[in-house]
Amino acid sequence: MSREGPSLEHLLRRLTETPSLFLDEPLIRKRGKVDLAAVASDLLLAIGGTLPTLKEANAFQPAKLAERNPARLLLIACWLLHDDWFVQRAELLGPIKTLLAEGLHELGNLIDAELFVTDPERREELVRLVLDALQLRPAGESPNQAADRLKSLDSLERERVIRASRARAEAERARKLRAEMEAREAREAAAKANREW
């Protein structure tokens, strides 16, 4: 977080004012409305990039339904980054490309995208996450303040802790399940008699 970015309040307000277009369904295999590849390409062009090749643009396009929520989050992030403060800084083009390509996927798999507009904590998390990815911090905050606040809001970190604590129990549970399913008695009891009617 080497540099000061725009003010937190400004970006939070921008998120609350996300136009419906950016909350519409992303186009996935003929379903949905919004062409994410076009939206992302527009943003990169606005920041000073060249027109992406078809292959580069299509990299943003979700290919399957499972990518829907990350794609929705990406649309919201595109709106956020279309703010003049970012658009006027061509040096951010590279980091923004990287952020759009890989920086939000994990979060998009975890939390429904709409919450990053409607829920105050998630809104702040998204803003801080985006700034952090661009090596920026909210205007008026020290690097330590910004880092502490991001850590306290970090859903991914919280999920990692939960997953780590769950992992051993789930592995043990899976082992027990396999053992129960292999047990002779369990199989004998279920010889086809009434399972389908």
């Binding site: 929520n69 998009g108 798999n109 975890l110 939390i111 429904d112 709409e114 919450l115 829920d119 859903s155």
Partner: peptide
């Protein structure tokens, strides 16, 4: 996995 937090 299929239902992110807050999924409607």
């Amino acid at each position: 996995q299929r239902l992110p937090l807050g999924f409607n």
